[in-house]
Every structure is written in structure tokens, then in C-alpha cells.
Nucleic acid binder design. Structure first.
Lengths: 341, 341
DNA sequence: GCGGAATCCGTAAGCGCTTACAACTCGCCT
DNA sequence: AGGCGAGTTGTAAGCGCTTACGGATTCCGC
């Protein structure tokens, strides 16, 4: 990477006949004064030479960059892809670069990446997806993030179920409770729950809301009504299989995430079990794929792109005062859930 | 971002009782010699202090960073999400950071982002998705990329239909031709083509392959058998609507991308037109959603994650010799296409 | 045990920018 | 006219790292 002759501030200054300091000020401090016409001259010189500041030099001098760090669990998952889309569209508008990293739901990797991004002097750190249930890890994260904030960084936690920095929250428990209530209202009494790993806090939240929603109507789940597969399509498939092969299969399968529900529906179809005639299915999240599914999936819809945009907006605000944005999930009652026959 | 007291190389050197130069060498040049035990001492000091090199200082000094630039059209699109997933998993393994940007299929934005990334001194630049049919723009891109390569950067073009840097290619035309032949073999004679914007080169390639495949069997498309909607689900919907509302609707709808085909199927369902009984549908790309679709979508499957991984692998190689990896698309004949009644 | 080569390590000069500080220019008031 | 302050510009000192260069040390064969 031997710099081909990239033009430096030096060159611009010379070309405009001013000192490098003045050039710097004209170029990067809009409310600096300066002799009449000076700024124009410098700007013209910069334009003419095709000058672009070296971001690393700038970062080194100011110790802050114009990148933001985006931490997701897995881009391949539509949930995060859409959310990232929202983040990126705002980044585009604000001339920010996004450093995206995937944790693959591994706490160690998450911490490592956070440290890496902090050392990159990213302007803000957006953490998305469920936090973990892991006291040591959380303490380490918290320490790292606090130090980062103290040094001027802005942290945004998005649908994490944990409170660090600005928050973009959805009330997982409440939405799930509502969905559960809706299922009961349809007449369902026997449930199977596809819940995902308990080490994920949002899984716990949703599960708890679900239980509460059922309990409100006098329905109590037994331990083996709930399975905890991987948070993936395959996980949903195997979960459906295991739940439906019990001596007394449930009439309603509730998953804590759309991707699980879609996996479940896929298995059900391959097993010749008709949804919703023989079993109802629900999800959570609002993936576009849920609408296109056949039958279309009953779920809680979250405007994921908007969540991402909001997160990025918050990322641009100073760390304090702290902002909390509550995003509404909306019940989408569709074809996959009907009253039991 | 006033640096809280981050530990600098300075500190490590002092702690290990060596000069800063030696510390630097021990830390970042694995095949430098050094007195016995010296390296260990420095490493220990670094570990003890929790030292991490300032990437900007390093980038400034060496004028090259450990980030790579990833240019996609739109993360929200599963095609790119999966591809990015592949890229990121290799990046994770290689300790590289990924700077992802979305062009939203806007040539100006693409060029601007490429320049930005080049100025960020990214180690490599991965360009994905179709290139544009725009001579001036392509010339500008080519100039920019060539200069970048000359300064040591490595460029990878992924499924772009254009030849800059290392290549990860799929033979769009050939695969599409095969798919078209397969449809003819099923007995289809009347076709509607959902093609996407012609300014995208891969759209042209696929379309050309499609035409060729039909022509091989004596079928020639008329101009109005082909529509050019946006490359999105909505585009697919409106395209299907327009094609099916002709006086003589086609019995086989071929789309140049899965997302278009899925949109088409969604409209067909809402219009009460049964796939494949009344009309067959095909796609191109290999999104997971195509398998889950009902009926499952006949398409050309591309191993998108592998494409991404391959791209990142190539990105790590020096710019020359130039590598070309041809990825095979495989015909996936599924439920959405059957012989016409 | 000695000369020269080989190896090791420290000093210092950047990389390209920002910014504190000093110098200088005006304009205006007394 | 002199002086003061506001406003403008330049000089130079970093930011934290790499690396050319040269002095010091070691090693080897003789």
C-alpha cells in the first residue's frame, strides 16, 4: 500500500498559498472565520486537487473516527440484515462508515469485538440482538462500555434486554403476552413452545411473557411443553418434530422467533401435518418471509428497519442525556393460527 | 473521545525495559530475531498491561489497515446478506474488520464509496452484485480501482459480470440457458420473463442466456414477453400482474432473480392463480426462502455463503497473479414448475 | 585472541493531520 | 498618535506507531 501520490493537506495549502494550519481550519472547521474569500480559495484548491483527508491521520490527531461499530449476532439472519439495513441507510445519509461484526452468539467473540471496535475509536457502538445471561461476561462488557462512554463514545443497545447507553427497546414480554392471549381467545388450550436457548435474555423475556399470557387465562405450561433448540430454521424444524411426536401433540405451536416458526412450518409440511387445520403456529419478529409463508405466519411484527434507523439516530447523539425509544410490536394475526377444529 | 488512559507501545516498552522500537518489532514482526527471552518478556508486558496497538497510528505509519471494504447493493436483500455472511465468517477467522457499504444500485454512490474506502486504506475491496451498464461510470471505477491496485490494494469482483481484480464468477448465461432448456423440456412454449433493470449487467447476462436457451429450441420471445421491474419483491409482484393480464397469459414465468419470482408467486396467490397448475414459475439465486416457498421454487442455486467466503479468501491474496474462481450454479427443479396441463 | 561479519537494539525521523500558542495586522477608542 | 483587543495566520508540537540508520555487541574462523 505504498501510497500512490495521494494529495495531502500540505499540497492543498501550497496550492492555495496558505499555511497548512489555515488549510486545515478552512477545510474542517465550518465556523472558523478567516479573511474574506480565503475559505473559498482553499476549498477550490482542495476540489481541484481532489483532496480527501487521510482518515487515519485525522483519527490519530483527534482520537475519534467517523466510523461506527455495529455488532450483530449473524448477518445471514434476516432479522439482523433488515436491522442493519436501517442502520446503513442512516449512515449513508450522515456520511458515516459502518464496521459490522458478527458474534455468532458467542459472548467471548462479542467482548473481543467490542474491544476491537473501541480501539478503532469508532464514534459510536451499536449493540443489537439479545444479550447473554452470563454474569462475568456482562460485567466485563459493562466495564468496557462504561470506559468507552467516559472517553466520549456513544453506546446504543438495540433489543438487547439490557440497559447500557441509549436504548431502542421493544417490550418483548408484553407483546408476547398479548399474542398468547390472542391464541387463548381463539380457543387454544394445548401449547407447545419453541423457545431458543435460555442464555439469551430476550428469549427469556419472550418466554416469560408467553407464560404470563397463558397463566392470565389459567393455562400453565409443563416443563416438557417447552423446547430450546438453536435459534435457526433447523432449530425450528427439530423442535417441531420433537413437540409433535409426543403422545399428545399440542394444537398450537408458539415460537419466540419467526425463523423458528418458519422452520417448524417447514417440518410440519414435510410431515404432512396441515397448518393451521391440524396445528396453529405463531412467530415473533416480523420477517418479510413470514408474510410470504404459506400459510402466512401469525406473529408480532417489529419494524426492523425503523429500529435500525432509530438506533443509528441515537448513536449520533451525545451519550447523555440518555435516550430511550420504545418501539411498538404489533400483533399480526394471519392464516397460520385459527381456532382449533 | 479524549483517550482515557489507554496503554501505548511506550508503556509496554518501559514495562519490559526495552526501547519502543524493540517493543514494536517483538510485537508485530514475528520473524525478527532478538535476544533469547526478549520476545516473551515484551509479550508478557503487553499482555499484563492489556496493550492493543492503535490501528490508526499503525495505519498512518504503514499506510495500510486491517480492514476490508465490502460493497453490496443492499444488505436487506438476502442475496447480499448471505454473501456478506460468508465474507464475515472468513474475516472473523482472519482477524479482519469489515467495512460494509450499500450502494442501493446507484452508480454515483458506488463510486463515492469506493473512493472513500480506498482512502481508508482498506487492505482489500470486495465488490459484489451486478455492475452497471454505464460507460463513464465504469471508466471512472476502473481508473480508481487500478490506482488502488497499483498502490497495493487487492480487488475482488463477485458476480459482477465485469473483470476487475480477482474474480468470483458464476456463469449466469449458461445457467440460465440450462434452466430455460429445462422448462422447454417440461413442455412449455409460452413464456413471460421478469427481467429487472437492463442497466444491470448480470440482468443482461441472465436474460441473454434465457433467450438463447429458448432459441436453442426454436422459441423466440417477443418484446412484450419481457418486463423490467425493480429488482425487488414488489417489482416481482407488479411484473407478474402485468404479464398475467395480457390477453394471452404465458404458462411459464421466468424471473432473473429469486426475489422477483417470490414476489410474482405472492401476487399470483393473491390473484387466485394456482402455481404450478395454471402457471409455472422459476427464479435464480438460491435464497433459502425459495425452498420454503409454497410451492417450492424452481431455480438456479448459488452457494451464496461459499461465494462470500471465496471472495474473502481471494481478497487476502496479492493482486497478482490474478485468480478466477468459477462457482457452479446448480439447477434446482422443484414444485413451482411442472409440465403445462 | 583478533578482525570482520552478522546480529541486536536504540535513536530519531517520519506518516498526515489538528491545535495550542505566539506573532502579527487592523480598527478603534482615548 | 498610542495602545489595546479582536481577529487572523503561521509555527511547531504532538497523536502512537513503524523503520532506516548506525553504534554496540556477539560470533565465527583463523
Amino acid at each position: 500500500m505504498a501510497d500512490r501520490n495521494l494529495v495531502r493537506l500540505q499540497d492543498v495549502a501550497a496550492h492555495a498559498g496558505v499555511s497548512i494550519a489555515t488549510a486545515s481550519r478552512m477545510l474542517s472547521d465550518p465556523n472558523y472565520g478567516g479573511r474574506a474569500g480565503l475559505r473559498e480559495r482553499v476549498l477550490a484548491a482542495a476540489a481541484e486537487l481532489g483532496y480527501r483527508a487521510n482518515p487515519h491521520a485525522r483519527a490519530l490527531a483527534t482520537s475519534s473516527s467517523s466510523s461506527v461499530g455495529l455488532v450483530v449476532h449473524d448477518v445471514r439472519d434476516s432479522y439482523f440484515a433488515l436491522l442493519s439495513g436501517g442502520v446503513m441507510s442512516v449512515a449513508d445519509r450522515e456520511d458515516l462508515l459502518v464496521n459490522m461484526v458478527c458474534t455468532y452468539r458467542d459472548p467471548a467473540r462479542e467482548l473481543e469485538y467490542v474491544k476491537l471496535l473501541v480501539h478503532q475509536r469508532v464514534r459510536a457502538l451499536i449493540l443489537t440482538g439479545s444479550a447473554f445471561r452470563d454474569t462475568v461476561h456482562n460485567a466485563a462488557m459493562r466495564a468496557e462500555l462504561r470506559a468507552y462512554q467516559e472517553s466520549g463514545g456513544s453506546v446504543v443497545s438495540v433489543t438487547r434486554g439490557r440497559d447500557v447507553g441509549h436504548l431502542v427497546q421493544i417490550d418483548n414480554a408484553a407483546a408476547m403476552r398479548e399474542l398468547a392471549a390472542a391464541m387463548v381467545k381463539l380457543g387454544h388450550t394445548s401449547f407447545g413452545v419453541i423457545a431458543g436457548p435460555l442464555r439469551l435474555l430476550t428469549v427469556r423475556d419472550r418466554l416469560q411473557g408467553l407464560k404470563q399470557g397463558l397463566k392470565d387465562h389459567g393455562i400453565v405450561l409443563r416443563r416438557d411443553d417447552i423446547v430450546h433448540p438453536d435459534l435457526s430454521r433447523e432449530g425450528g424444524q427439530s423442535a417441531a418434530q420433537s413437540l409433535m411426536s409426543r403422545r399428545n401433540p399440542p394444537r398450537c405451536l408458539m415460537a419466540v422467533a419467526d425463523v423458528l416458526a418458519l422452520g417448524a412450518m417447514s417440518w410440519l409440511r414435510s410431515a404432512g401435518i396441515v397448518v393451521p387445520d391440524e396445528v396453529s403456529v405463531t412467530g415473533f419478529g416480523g420477517l418479510p418471509a413470514a408474510i410470504d409463508a404459506v400459510p402466512s405466519l401469525t406473529t408480532v411484527e417489529i419494524p426492523l428497519e425503523r429500529v435500525g434507523e432509530t438506533a443509528m439516530d441515537l448513536a449520533l447523539r451525545p451519550a447523555s442525556p440518555r435516550h430511550v425509544v420504545e418501539i411498538e410490536g404489533t400483533l399480526a394475526l394471519r392464516e397460520s393460527a385459527t381456532p382449533p377444529a
